[in-house]
Design a protein around this nucleic acid. Structure first.
Lengths: 206, 206
DNA sequence: AAAATTAAATTAAACGTTTGTTTAGTTTAA
DNA sequence: TTAAACTAAACAAACGTTTAATTTAATTTT
């Protein structure tokens, strides 16, 4: 199954609509109209609406190749590693925020028949990496020892995602007029805030 | 519009199903079957599926009377106030986690026609309270002055919500066999973790 | 207190739309 | 000439809602 231009176009349109109105809240006719194609093309290309979602997930995840290993070097201190990790992961999640929103919601459904295995593998990989960094910092004495590494990830990702899910709210409170302003705020203020938070949590003295 | 037993029963069933399968992913026939009533009763009682959701939101929000003002006294230090706030808010959100999940998702939809005003008011109120506590701590010198108060809330709520949305994942990692175990973990470990994080963020020396 | 009357609660069936998918045919490109 | 791309139309199923009839409960009249 090669990825023709048309297929990619359909997946991108679908991602946008799924993120905006939910999977169940989006009809194949809406997607077809927005992508300027015939409804039948969705079944023709992907088989079904569900399989379109799965194809889109794989398409996005394949973007995900580990830039982590290439930018984080063994010479770094544990804190530098964590900061680097936060920067990369938040930037990455922000870039794919629509997909994450869709998964975040669809994954919790009881009735789901969609295959999220690849996504979950990715997720578990992330947890392992953070855990490794934190434990090495705890061993060399630079981090507090009473921190549960597994709870650090929800703080990192949760902070960002809560910001994104309440975008409208923060836009008005922080007077961010457009998407470009939000982009800047995420990189210049939100990511440093999260880095600050985790640094403080891991290193402060009681 | 008084709240008969039947109406409450329908709203509770609807809340559960909406949280599990989404608003669009739940049909009125599913609700009717689960609540053991005739489908027509939903229109009869609430007018429409959308109005059922709105009625359910109001029903839950009315629970929300400010226990904050009654438990947080002026004699407390800013840090004590923040800790108390975290405890109350997370416990409250946890208790109403289903409703929060529904709102969190439906609110971001472009196509939404549902009235969330009461919910947003509640939310803004929370932000004002945290901001007040943090600013008073910054004035008396016990908190760092370079913290943006508005970003503290995403860290508090985001950490909890990310935990809840990935419940299945954490259940397996932390070996929490049932709902009771999760309940204990939230109160004994997650809430202290959040309190720790915010305390560290607000008080640590660089 | 019993009967008659009225209102509310509940039902099954039907309403017109919209849903995802398939079919059978046509156009385009190799 | 053959396979892939594409289309309009049709499909049955499911959707939220309404209708009209019936049962239950409350109120009023006798």
């Amino acid at each position: 199954m090669k990825l023709s231009e048309k297929k990619i176009q359909i997946m991108e349109v679908a991602e946008k609509l799924f993120a905006e109105n939910g999977f169940d809240g989006t009809s194949v006719r809406q997607i077809a109209k927005a992508a300027d194609i015939n409804v039948a093309m969705i079944s023709y290309y992907f088989g079904s609406k569900e399989k379109l979602l799965e194809a889109m997930l794989l398409f996005r995840i394949s973007d995900y190749m580990s830039e982590l290993q290439s930018t984080i070097t063994p010479a770094m201190t544990p804190l530098e590693k964590i900061n680097c990790f936060i920067n990369i992961v938040i930037t990455r999640v922000h870039r794919n925020r629509r997909m994450h929103k869709i998964v975040n919601f669809e994954y919790t459904k009881d009735s789901r028949t969609i295959d999220f295995d690849k996504y979950i593998d990715q997720k578990k990989e992330n947890y392992k990496i953070v855990e490794e960094f934190i434990k090495s910092g705890q061993q060399d004495g630079s981090f507090r020892k009473d921190i549960t590494p597994v709870l650090v990830v929800p703080t990192i990702l949760g902070t960002y995602l809560h910001f994104y899910y309440n975008k409208r709210f923060f836009q008005s409170v922080l007077t961010l007029p457009d998407e470009a302003a939000i982009e800047h705020y995420v990189h210049d203020t939100l990511i440093p805030h999260i880095q600050n938070t985790i640094k403080a949590l891991l290193t402060y003295e009681k």
